[in-house]
Each structure stands twice: as structure tokens, then as C-alpha cells.
Design a protein around this nucleic acid. Structure first.
Lengths: 134, 134
DNA sequence: CTAGTTGCAAAGAGTTTGCATGGCG
DNA sequence: CGCCATGCAAACTCTTTGCAACTAG
């Protein structure tokens, strides 16, 4: 899709690779790269292209701001993502368990789960313990 | 939280009850209720309050528009939602299967899945067949 | 050199908020 | 009657788009 490899695209890709599978907003990325001279629109345009190429996944949980996630060619293939509602961190379910889970859904509901589009929300093992402050 | 039961709130609640567990945007709701004389801001304000009260769930899949889902007091307790990426319809996984799935995640990942906040994306049984047009 | 890309600023879309009016209790 | 909720419009935030300048190949 992209014809030229510009400085900005290189910068963005490098940044994304360093933050694979993290949920980042376009604005966060632009802010982190503000010293690299890349405009917000360039970030949006490149992210849109990367999404079309399948290298980036776009989603949103709050409904105000979209978040983008880099899915490296090989990394995280067939694994599901778990997002902690408290600390916000993303965890990775290994391919085996993810596949098992997908099978359950397929068998009981006849629903073909898309692993790369689905994010499971809940509390990670660390946040389950410190349930003090709510 | 809400002190008065206004005509608008009644209208909104009635509409939501008639569309329990559907993913609706604020604007869709306002449009559907345009004859009932309820303003867009009233819809937003009431939805926000209902969300705080736990009667409504807010989420978004595309990152542009938020969608709200009414979770009636009893309805859909402990069930997971499946959203078809093709036809957009929402399906309900029964409480039993959902619980089984939650157990798997808890056991293998130590992650406490929140059933009401999680939506599984994929293809429903109907759309899996008619895979023709992409 | 030529077409794709960038940056900027303006335009859009969705959501929130301030304020005067209106209506529930 | 007092106060909360509504409606309207303006303000905001995030994202997209038009266009001239720039640059990778």
C-alpha cells in the first residue's frame, strides 16, 4: 500500500515495534514522538495505512479515543489479549489456551471467535489481590 | 442518583428495556425517540447517569462512536456477549458456557474475567456460511 | 523529476457543558 | 414552590481532509 518509506513512517514503525501489543492512542504516539518531528496527521494517516495492511489493530474501550495495537508479523499469533480494568496493562493468553477457548465457543455457540479482534476485560492476578481501594 | 422521574427519562428507560442488550449509540437512541421530544443532550446525560447506576454499559468498537447497552437488573446475568463482525448482531452465550469459559481463563491465566464488560468478536453461525461477499 | 507524503489549519463528528426555562414532587 | 432536569447552542476533543511544500526513489 505504501510506496515510499519516509522518515516519519520509519520512526513510527520503530516506535510501534518497541511497544508491540500495547494499546496506544494516536495522540500518545504523536506525543512520544514529538521530538522526531512527526505530525499528528501523519501518525493518523500512517496508522490507518498500517491497519489496512493488517499490521495494526484499531479498537476502543471507552468510546472517546481510539487505541491502536501493533501486531508484529509473528508475535502474538493466535493468542488472546487480556486487559486489566484496574491497572490497564495488557496480558497475553498463550496460543494453546486461546485455541481451547475458541473451541469451546465454536462448539457451544457455533460462533467463530476472532482472536485478534477480541479483548477480554477483567482483573489481572496482581490487581485481584490488592482489592482494597475502589 | 436521579431525583426526578421525568418524561424523558421514562421514555428512554422504556426504549432501553425494549432493546435490552442491544448495542446502541446515543444518536441512534435520540433519533428513534425524536417524536418523543427528548434532546440529544438529555439522552447523553441520562445514559451517563444510568451507566453510573450500573444499568447501562458503555463501550465502543470502532473508536469514534460510543455504544450503550442496557443490562436489565436480571437479564443476561452471567452471560457473555458475542458480536458478529459481519452482520453486527449481538448474540448471548448462556451463563453455563460463559462460566466455564471464565473458569478456563482464571485457571490458565489467573485472570478474573469480567463477563459484563467483555465482548467476543467473530463471525456468527449464519455469517460463517455465506462467506461469499467480503 | 514525479508522485506519494508531510504539516498545517480548517472542517467534521461525537460528546460535554453553561445557562435560562420548565416541570417533578 | 424549590430544585433538578431539559433544551439549545457553544465549547471541546478526537479524527479526517484540502492543499501547498517537500522528498524518496
Amino acid at each position: 500500500m505504501s510506496k515510499y518509506m519516509t522518515k516519519q513512517r520509519r520512526t513510527l514503525l520503530s516506535y510501534l515495534r518497541g511497544h508491540a501489543d500495547e494499546q496506544l492512542s494516536a495522540q500518545e504516539i504523536a506525543a512520544a514522538l514529538r521530538d522526531e518531528r512527526i505530525s499528528l496527521s501523519a501518525v493518523y494517516r500512517n496508522l490507518a495505512e498500517l491497519e489496512a495492511e493488517g499490521l495494526v489493530r484499531r479498537s476502543a474501550s471507552n468510546g472517546r479515543e481510539a487505541s491502536y495495537r501493533f501486531v508484529g508479523a509473528e508475535a502474538c499469533r493466535g493468542c488472546l489479549h487480556l486487559s486489566c480494568k484496574r491497572c490497564g496493562r495488557t496480558f497475553h493468553m498463550d496460543a494453546g489456551s486461546a485455541e481451547q477457548l475458541t473451541q469451546v465457543v465454536a462448539k457451544t455457540e457455533g460462533f467463530a471467535l476472532d482472536k485478534s479482534d477480541t479483548v477480554l476485560y477483567g482483573l489481572c492476578e496482581f490487581c485481584q489481590d490488592g482489592k482494597k481501594e475502589e
